[in-house]
Design a protein around this nucleic acid. Structure first.
Lengths: 263, 263
DNA sequence: AAGTGTAAGCGTATGGTCTACGGAAAAGGA
DNA sequence: TCCTTTTCCGTAGACCATACGCTTACACTT
């Protein structure tokens, strides 16, 4: 039914896998052509897992199904990947990289708010393409190329604003947290719409009618007032989007205020 | 290993259970003392589930274990609760209620920012007490007394600021989203610290040393600069807290600006 | 006091999950 | 040909939610 990210935390095994493309020699401590030949590549395993998770969700991405989709036995996967948690780390870093955020010396829009907007847009697109990201904790992310490219890009958008290093880091963290949270909530909603076949607004509508049975006007005067003044008229989806945009613009205003004070 | 919230979505069955304390008569369509006597109450089931989830996490809260802790068979629980998803909804509304946010005509601090701070504080305490909340989706919450009390309180903190009903609702949604997100991330970190026995900062430290093996200065000039200027010196936990507080204060500033413009 | 209707309690079965273990199979080198 | 090394993978153990249907307990009627 579900998924939680229980990190086995063995950096020595997972880091070489994460960095296999930029530093492929690192895992070359085994004699070249000795023993049975491999039928797959790690990339193929990650791609197959991604395809399943994208299509049916992280819960449906069992080791059984990944193996079956590759035509191998389940346990074969464990010769490519230490554990399922590690496979998920590899998937995450893969899709982080897919955003193709501009690197140093690559062209990017001006001014910095546009650069932040680019990051936000690509990140939201990433969550839409890979809704399962919602279920992956971000507090201990995979230390891979995709994650480092993100931090570099977000920091670099603010690099010329004259913030102190401390402020710069704080601001970058606030931006990342805000953007991923917003994307995560949007995704959550989309995912439920698909899995239940019921739109978000329809879900609320259904409950709105029912809760009138239980709603006590005395205990909820403000809600009642807002209700009667039409404050709830727009769909919930719409309202959430507006709320997030409002909050995000205020955060960027706040950062901008720091720069003018500093400069 | 994990948990996902797959809502069966049967409002007719779950709503009377959610509102059982404020409207106990609602479920009284069965003749009173007919048939075998119940061994438990719904409250006892919810309490037992809460105890397990608080202690060992939502993943460890299996129907098996809840039943065992109550000394009944597993399937007995299904005479109290339609499904596990519904049981989780009941747990959520229970802890939302536990915050005991001031109702209408109950004393509360002034000015409104202090009222918002009260909400934020209680909510964060709730997440600390019940870390499993992190894994429960908030986009389709249980429509129970606790959830309605929250919306009423947050809306009421802004009731006297002269915002339009639309603005009021948007602002309240932004505040709720921000607070729950922050609490959620903090909790996530705490939970991992307990379950892995490794502090957040220690985890980063361990990886920081290892990634120097893979870190490419050319590709990450800004990170390098921030690093060398000491921008990463404070612990990650600390930095995240600062970032969130910064963002939250900017959001409240933005709301305040709306009120002065309106009044 | 016996019988009956009703609801609660719960054992079993189904079809999943991850992964430890150990044996089988394939490849290169001697 | 045989040995070493590596991959491949079947089996098994210990979990999970819940559909189904039988057993048990209780209140009311006769």
């Amino acid at each position: 039914m579900g998924v939680e990210h229980s990190g086995r935390a063995d950096p020595d095994r997972i880091l070489p896998l994460l960095w296999r493309h930029t530093r492929p020699v690192a895992a070359d401590d085994s004699r070249p052509g000795l023993g049975r030949r491999r039928r797959l590549t790690l990339d193929a395993v990650v791609a197959a897992a991604l395809a399943l998770a994208d299509a049916d969700g992280l819960a449906a991405m069992s080791m059984n199904r990944v193996a079956a989709s590759l035509g191998v036995g389940t346990m074969t996967l464990y010769t490519y990947v230490p554990s399922k948690a590690d496979l998920i780390d590899l998937m995450v870093d893969e899709v982080l990289t897919e955003r193709a955020l501009p690197g140093p010396s690559e062209p990017r829009p001006e001014p910095w708010r546009e650069q932040v907007a680019l990051y936000a847009e690509r990140t939201r697109a990433m969550y839409r393409r890979h809704p399962w990201l919602r279920h992956v904790s971000t507090v201990r992310p995979p230390i891979g190329p995709g994650m480092l490219a993100e931090r570099e890009y977000v920091l670099s958008t603010l690099a010329d604003t004259g913030l102190t290093p401390q402020q710069l880091n704080t601001a970058a963290l606030a931006i990342t947290a805000f953007v991923t949270t917003t994307a995560s909530l949007e995704t959550d909603s989309d995912e439920l719409e698909r899995s239940t076949g019921q739109s978000h607004d329809a879900w609320w509508q259904e409950r709105t009618q029912l809760w009138e049975e239980y709603f006590d006007v005395e205990r909820h005067p403000t809600m009642t007032r807002v209700w009667n003044s039409g404050g709830f008229d727009r769909g919930t989806t719409d309202q959430m989007a507006t709320a997030h945009e409002f909050g995000f613009e205020r955060l960027l205003d706040g950062i901008e205020a720091l720069t003018t004070r500093a400069g």
